[in-house]
Amino acid sequence: MQIQSVACLCFSPTGTTRRIGEKIAQGMGCEQVEIMDCTKRSWRKNGQFDFSKDLIIIATPVYYGRVPEEIVPFLKTLNVQNKPAVIVVVYGNREYDDALLELHDISLARGFIPVACGAFVAEHSYSCPDRPIALARPDPEDDKTAKLFGSRIMDKLRTIRSIENMQKITVPGNFPYKEPENLLKIKEVRNTLSFTPETDLDKCTQCGLCAEVCPAEAIDSEDVSVIDKWQCIICFACIKNCPSGAKQMVDPHFNDAIDRLQIICRQRKEPEIFL
């Protein structure tokens, strides 16, 4: 098979998933590379989806061991026919649980043919200066691994005459997929509490960047201290992107959970690839 063009379809609230997808695409060495960032709801509603490229990289982060609920309905509207795809999930150094299998299965059901799959590590969305989790990842070594992955995918495809002749990819995971218990707890808590990032008005400059980067459009652009708790997906895009550090998660129960998570995630994990 000859692959001359590639597109990367990514959902990436904090930018790390997009970076991994870009590095994989770079490693493939194609002259034509397109990034289709579907993080924003407005893009998913109004964007133009060009799946004419020879191969599509589909990349999402892992939330609570699963593909993020925010992006699943969009992915299930896609429709192609026997389009080669690379399936990638990016997780915060805990576990990716059933997310890679779930994304693989969704893609397969929409007409994509997985030719390679990978699980990469990035700084956890909940990582912060006093509780770092996979700090500064993806790092140069992760970038190198992602590029090598892209190169190996191309080597594999050169040996295959057609997509029909390719052996199916097997990835870890369980079906039925594991219930995202912590996410369910958050939804339950929100029946009585807001449980969203809070705004320090003394630091906030009302620049509006947090509302701009919010993938769920949960932040009021006129008053960024107002967050719709039923729309917020706790991706921390607002926290990570705030130039003045005005957005923080201050709930003590949440921060206690992050303390425990930091302990669990101390040992460095490496990317896993499936060719």
Rank of each mutant, 00 (worst) to 15 (best):
K147Q: 14
I20C: 09
C238V: 00
D202T: 12
D139L: 04
F112D: 15
T192E: 13
L135R: 14
K144E: 02
D37F: 12
Y63R: 11
T170S: 06
A216M: 03
E222H: 11
R44H: 08
P132R: 02
G245P: 06
V224M: 02
K147A: 05
T17G: 08
V88F: 04
E217F: 06
V67Y: 01
T159G: 07
P215F: 02
E272H: 11
D251R: 13
C238F: 00
E141R: 15
P197F: 00
R94S: 15
A136I: 01
A218F: 07
Y177D: 03
I219W: 00
C38K: 02
P129L: 02
C238R: 01
K144S: 00
L103Q: 12
L135G: 09
V226Q: 12
E212L: 09
I186R: 13
Q2D: 08
A59D: 03
Q248S: 13
V224T: 04
K156V: 01
S52Y: 04
K53S: 10
Q231D: 09
E70G: 14
A85I: 07
I234W: 00
Q167T: 14
G150P: 15
L183G: 14
P61T: 00
V189Q: 06
I24V: 13
D256R: 15
L157R: 13
Q4N: 15
R41M: 09
A99V: 03
L100H: 01
N182Q: 11
L157C: 07
R44G: 15
D143C: 11
P197L: 01
L261F: 11
I219V: 05
L157D: 02
S5C: 06
Q81A: 12
I186H: 04
A146M: 04
G208S: 02
G92D: 04
R266I: 05
T192C: 13
S194W: 13
F120Y: 10
Y126G: 14
R268Q: 10
A257Q: 08
I20P: 09
E270D: 13
A146H: 04
N191A: 12
I87R: 11
F120R: 12
Q267V: 08
C210G: 10
S52R: 14
V189L: 09
G118H: 06
V250C: 05
L135H: 10
N82R: 11
A7H: 06
L100V: 04
T199P: 08
F112C: 15
L75Y: 07
S52C: 08
Q167C: 11
D143H: 13
D155A: 11
S162H: 12
R44E: 06
R260V: 12
K83E: 03
V115D: 07
E272C: 07
K178L: 10
E69N: 15
D143P: 14
A134E: 01
E272T: 09
G65L: 06
I239P: 05
V6C: 15
P140T: 03
R260Q: 10
Y177L: 14
I239S: 03
Q81L: 13
L103K: 14
L275N: 12
G150N: 11
P84L: 06
I263D: 07
P215Q: 00
K168Q: 14
I3G: 02
D220H: 05
A59N: 10
V33Q: 09
P243L: 01
F274A: 01
F149S: 13
L78R: 10
Y64C: 09
M1E: 05
I239A: 02
R131G: 02
